[in-house]
Simulated scan of single mutants.
Amino acid sequence: MQSYRSIPIEECKDPLVGIPAEPFAFTRPHPYVLLGAPYGDASPWMLRRRVLAALLQAADALHARRPGWRLKLFDAYRPLPVQAFMVWREFGLQAERAGRSLAPCRNPAELEVREPELHAALAATVFEFWGIPSDDPRTPPPHSTGAAVDLTLQDAAGHEVDMGCPIDETTERAYPDHYAGATTPELHGFHERRTLLHDVMTSAGFNRHANEWWHFSLGDQMWAWARGERAAIFGRAR
């Protein structure tokens, strides 16, 4: 998945804009703000202007297929310090599951120096899902471009629908087609709803992350790489 970082960026200067309350639903309180992620004066509820326009198109497409349903946003713009915070948190979660401690390390770079084998083992899982928090302007994490959004579906009764695993789960259940071969109605329903989300988002020009049913982007390096574009149009937003 990280090969997308080799795609060149031809920044189009489209500004970050706030995401309006309508017609979307939002995960509140914002999950990363609740964890103490360092947003500073930035808001997670921002996207590049043309990405927001496409997201509004996707919301219309969903309404046409499921009247009363909404796109429920989980996360959008992520400043680089937030990406680094969340990635290190995921390193910690993966270490706990393996019965290991990351102390006294404070970030992946320190861990790589002190315990390279542990770093490599954890990174193999973490970076299958999370973007590398690079401060190199040539390789920004997708969410730091303002061109990526994590989202799910909310039904007409206002309930978040079950997609088979929660957003940010780092297991095979996160793979978009994990339930494609399911034979029970419940499990097949997960695949149908993931397919619905995919269909309405791609109809508006978005591309889905290969390993995450919830992550979609438009105009960043991952999008350009997946679509065979020569260059991305969005680099790091700030």
Rank of each mutant, 00 (worst) to 15 (best):
F26W: 12
T27H: 04
R28T: 15
P31M: 11
Y32F: 14
Y32E: 13
L34W: 15
G36Q: 07
Y39R: 06
Y39D: 11
G40W: 05
A42L: 11
A42S: 12
S43D: 15
P44E: 08
P44H: 10
W45Q: 09
W45P: 09
W45A: 07
M46H: 10
M46N: 08
V51Q: 09
A53G: 14
A53F: 07
A54Y: 01
A54H: 02
L55M: 09
Q57N: 13
A58V: 03
A58H: 01
L62W: 04
L62I: 08
H63M: 12
R66W: 02
P67H: 11
G68I: 02
W69N: 12
R70K: 14
L71D: 04
L73G: 04
F74C: 10
D75T: 06
D75Q: 11
A76Y: 01
A76D: 03
R78M: 07
P79V: 05
V82S: 00
A84S: 14
A84V: 05
F85Q: 07
V87N: 15
G92T: 04
G92W: 01
L93D: 06
A95G: 06
R97F: 08
R97H: 13
A98M: 12
R100C: 09
R100M: 13
S101H: 08
L102R: 07
A103V: 02
P104Q: 01
C105P: 05
R106H: 10
R106C: 05
L111R: 08
L111Y: 12
R114S: 05
E117T: 07
L118Y: 08
H119E: 03
A120E: 14
L122R: 10
A124T: 03
V126H: 08
V126Y: 10
F127A: 01
F127I: 01
F129A: 05
G131Y: 07
D135C: 11
R138D: 13
P141M: 00
P141E: 02
P141H: 01
P142R: 14
P142Q: 14
H143T: 02
